[in-house]
Amino acid sequence: MFGLHYNLERNAIGLVLAIVVVAGIGGFIEIAPLFTIDETVEQDADMRVYTPLEVAGRNIYIREGCYACHSQMIRTLRDDVDRYGPYSLAVESQYDHPMLWGSKRTGPDLARVGDKYSDAWNTAHLNNPRDLVPESKMPAYRWLLRNELKTEDLGLHLAALRKVGVPYTDEMIANASIDAYAQANPDTNDAPALAERYGDATHIRMFDGDGARLTEMDALVAYLQVLGKMTDAAYQPDLPEAQ
C-alpha cells in the first residue's frame, strides 16, 4: 500500500488520475441518493405554509441566533422520541428556507414545541426565562415586547419564498402586511380573510397579550406556536418505530 502511494507521488499524471477516481467514487455515493429522493421524502397534501406573522417570527428567531442553542430535529432514537415526541420527517421542513435543524442543544429541541405552552408562558419566558425556570441559562429578550414589528416588507419576504418553491399566491403576497396585523388582533375585520387564505387551523389571537400594538414578541410567539403543527404526517400510524 505504501509502495503504491510513493509511486503515485512520483507520477504526477497517475496521482491526478487517482484523485479523480477517488473523488468520483465519493461524489457518486453522495449524489446517487438524489435520484430516488421522490421515493424517500414524504408527501402531505395538507402541509400548510407559514403566515406572514409566522414568517416574521422565524426571521426574528434567526436574527437572535436561537438556532445556535436549540435544534429543530428530533432523531429516530428512542430517548429523543420519548422526550420530544415523534421523530422529525423531511416533509415537515418542506417550506423552511433555510433549514433550522441545528447542531447543538444547549436548550431543548423545539421541533414540537407548538401549543405545548400558552402564549403567556412563551411571552414571559422570552422576556425573562428565570421568572419561570430559575436555573435557565437562556438570555432575556426584553426588547421583543418593546420593538414594534416592521410589516412593510413582508410581501417581499413571501415573494422571495415563492421563488424557492413555497406556494404563496398573489393574494397572500399582496395582503401580507394586513394579514400580519389581523393574526394578532382577532377582533379586526381582516381576521376572517386571513383564516380563509391560510386555513381554519391558523392561530388568530393576541400572542403577547396586548392588542394595541403589533410587536416582535407577537411574531416570535406565533412562530413558536406552529412548530410541529404544520402537518400531521409524523403522527401517522404506518411510520417505522424509533430505534
Rank of each mutant, 00 (worst) to 15 (best):
residue 43 Q to S: 08
residue 43 Q to H: 09
residue 43 Q to C: 00
residue 44 D to P: 05
residue 45 A to H: 04
residue 45 A to N: 11
residue 46 D to Y: 08
residue 47 M to E: 11
residue 47 M to H: 12
residue 49 V to R: 14
residue 49 V to T: 15
residue 49 V to L: 13
residue 50 Y to I: 00
residue 51 T to P: 05
residue 52 P to F: 07
residue 52 P to Y: 05
residue 52 P to Q: 02
residue 52 P to L: 03
residue 54 E to H: 04
residue 54 E to Q: 15
residue 56 A to H: 01
residue 56 A to I: 04
residue 57 G to W: 00
residue 57 G to D: 02
residue 58 R to P: 02
residue 58 R to A: 09
residue 58 R to V: 07
residue 58 R to I: 07
residue 60 I to L: 12
residue 61 Y to L: 02
residue 61 Y to S: 02
residue 61 Y to H: 07
residue 61 Y to W: 12
residue 61 Y to Q: 06
residue 62 I to K: 14
residue 63 R to W: 02
residue 63 R to S: 13
residue 64 E to D: 14
residue 65 G to F: 08
residue 65 G to Y: 01
residue 67 Y to R: 10
residue 67 Y to S: 10
residue 67 Y to D: 06
residue 69 C to S: 08
residue 69 C to A: 10
residue 69 C to M: 07
residue 70 H to A: 11
residue 70 H to L: 13
residue 70 H to F: 08
residue 70 H to P: 05
residue 71 S to F: 00
residue 71 S to K: 15
residue 71 S to P: 03
residue 72 Q to E: 11
residue 73 M to N: 15
residue 73 M to C: 05
residue 73 M to S: 08
residue 73 M to D: 12
residue 74 I to V: 13
residue 74 I to C: 04
residue 74 I to H: 07
residue 76 T to Y: 10
residue 76 T to M: 14
residue 76 T to K: 14
residue 77 L to M: 13
residue 77 L to A: 15
residue 78 R to V: 14
residue 78 R to C: 00
residue 79 D to W: 00
residue 79 D to A: 15
residue 79 D to M: 12
residue 80 D to R: 03
residue 80 D to A: 14
residue 81 V to R: 09
residue 81 V to T: 13
residue 81 V to N: 07
residue 82 D to L: 15
residue 82 D to Y: 04
